[in-house]
Amino acid sequence: MEESQKDLELIDRYLEGVLAEEEQAVVEQRLQEDTEFKAMFEDIKSLTKGIEELGNAKLKRKFKELDANLGNPLKDKKVAVKEVNWTRYIGWAAVLVAGLFSIIYFSSRSQISHEGIYEDYFAIYDNVVVPTKRGVDSLELINQAFAHYDTREYAAAALVFEEILKKDKTEYIQFYYAMTLMEQQDWEGAKLILEGLLSGGENFIRQSKWYLALTYIRLKEEEQSRSLLNSLIEDGTSYAEAAGEIMERIN
């Protein structure tokens, strides 16, 4: 194999994150010392990333082409409201109103759909800390846990996280473990972890507040949820708007 092709393969595998530690160190050393190698590295990085981004750009172009032939459903929604002759429905409306009053009367304490709010707003937090490596069956527990997480095998991920947490209480491990518990509908378990993160942690604070607020909602603990939602609104974080909407719904 030509020398330059060997280098190219080395760089490509480095960028994919599949090199052994010693090989990684060799690449990093050469990047410091060898300008030609560094230039090749920068080009390969731009090219491989560029191919990926171009593919996404093409897909977006295709969606835009599809959009060109479609309407704006927000406008269409308003246009679609037709004139109705209401007099035909007065009798039925009277029965309906009477029925609604009885429902409201008998269920005044259960007007809030806690499950509904939770379903509308809960979306599991993406793995943004440990990239999954293609084609690598890593023996490291942390990679195993996040590989399961990325493939949405949350029960399996939870088991590995539990194993890691026996020795390592790093905050992000706890946070993602809580996510797997929420996905498995173990809200009490998630609550315990997230409360712990908020009482003594330094990282994942606003995320923990958001997910704990949702957990409280799901457990019908409205007061605790209100306090966290207010805090998110005051902080003006990216969760502020959604927090405001939930406050409107639970008030």
């Binding site: 599809l66 479609l70 704006n72 459903p73 927000l74 708007e241 959604a242 909407e245």
Partner: peptide, 18 residues
Amino acid sequence: IYLKYRDEFIVWLNKYYK
């Protein structure tokens, strides 16, 4: 899939996320 859920999603996002 894009066509099937597009309008519904846009209306939903408008309703819950303004």
